[in-house]
Simulated scan of single mutants.
Amino acid sequence: MIPVNEPLLTGNEKKYLAECIDTGWISSEGPFVRQFEQGIAARVSRRHGIAVSNGSVALEAAVAALGIGEGDEVIIPTFTIISCAAAVVRAGAMPVLIDSDPITWNIDAEKLKIKLKDEIDRKGNKKIKAIMVVHIYGLPVDMEPILELAEKYRLLIIEDAAEMLGQTYKGQPCGSYGDISTMSFYPNKHVTTGEGGMILTDSDALAEKCRSLRNLCFLAKKRFVHEELGWNFRMTNLQAAVGIAQMEQLDVFVIKKRKMGQKYTELLSDIKSIDLPVQKTDYAENIYWVYGIVLKDEIPFDAEEAMKRLGEKGIGTRPFFWPMHEQPVFKKMGFFKGESHPVAERISRRGFYIPSGLALTDNQINEVSRALHEVLA
């Protein structure tokens, strides 16, 4: 079986983990945590990095730190992981959904513009507080029009850069945009800590708030006296040690990812019945966090069936995100009644990604290509 993802742990991971064990620094108090925070922040040109236990809780803390709560609304793409919507809903706020661009699969800036014009200019909606942008699969969101809209309507920006460490938008690092950014270090990311995440900001006040929220809101002088409720979202020194070793190889990983993507494109470009990822736009070159494909309408079966057939040939796959407006949990809550977002609906049903992990070999890419040609012949 060729797995959909296998991390590459060939650097100083064992060395730094052994140092943690030898020194006894295995908890969140260890020195590697601060070093990792500083390294990620420097890489994406942010003043502050706050390490947390995973990317989902990074979003939770970011939303809370911005003061988003009951009665507020946050614009998010409908085509994203549920963590984005869950962070908004758990805060007591309401997600407002926008469909995807059919080419990049990211939030459609033109549809966002129309939505804001209708909700704020026409309806006078004062509940919308923020836009959560989520960079999807390999290409960043087209940020300039988003930033202009945020400035025009005085909206906060939360940048979910979970899949984009090492990527840039017009030369500026992803993770550097807006009021606050988040990242994930799950094993399928360019840099992994097993589990783990990061909150990034240039604001001293937001950074202080996030550090408090991740650490149960302990008071500096009276540790077990609490004026607010926080969470235990801390990252351990062991995780940070792995992250530092991974960061030492990030530039190599990015080059490897792009070469893998280019090889897949060369091998699969003769299959006219599928849409392949866009190699570049006028603002970014694809980083191929994963290599996604979308079945065209002439294929008489959907992604689920294609994945089943590939699995029978020993090829691991994973489906695309399922749209937020079609999530059963939100339907039970009465959210998004009557909403339709055709692009997201189509790519979620006809899209999936193939093995894309950093440990993938050229021979395995060739095997995946052969299997796809057989399944989609």
Rank of each mutant, 00 (worst) to 15 (best):
K117T: 04
I271Q: 09
M143R: 01
A284G: 06
A51W: 12
G197I: 02
E29K: 15
I271F: 05
D282Y: 08
L59G: 01
E163V: 00
N106G: 06
G124F: 14
M333Q: 13
L112A: 05
L358G: 00
V96R: 12
K263A: 14
H135E: 08
E151N: 03
P300R: 08
G92F: 05
L112W: 11
P173Q: 03
Y169S: 01
Y153H: 03
P187E: 14
Y186L: 08
V252N: 07
N125G: 08
I68E: 00
G24T: 10
E228M: 09
E312C: 00
K15Y: 13
E163M: 08
R223N: 02
T80V: 13
I146K: 03
N366G: 06
Y16M: 15
I40R: 07
P77K: 11
S356D: 05
V63I: 13
F233E: 15
P355M: 02
E37A: 12
T104W: 07
P77V: 10
P342E: 10
A85K: 13
I287N: 00
M307I: 07
I157T: 14
N12P: 07
E345P: 00
V74A: 03
R43Y: 14
F352V: 10
A303P: 10
I128E: 09
K111A: 09
L310F: 04
Q262R: 09
V74M: 00
L139Q: 03
H48T: 11
L295T: 01
W25L: 10
H341S: 10
S56A: 15
E208G: 02
K14Y: 12
G243S: 06
K313V: 12
A150K: 06
S181N: 02
I274T: 09
E159K: 01
Y137V: 08
S181D: 03
D118Q: 13
I81Q: 12
S356W: 05
G334L: 08
V133Q: 10
M247W: 07
N54E: 10
M143G: 02
G261Y: 04
P187R: 14
P319I: 01
N106P: 06
R211L: 04
L17K: 04
A41F: 02
N5K: 08
C174E: 11
F233D: 11
H325Q: 13
Y264N: 12
E266L: 14
S184R: 12
I114D: 07
W105R: 13
M94I: 12
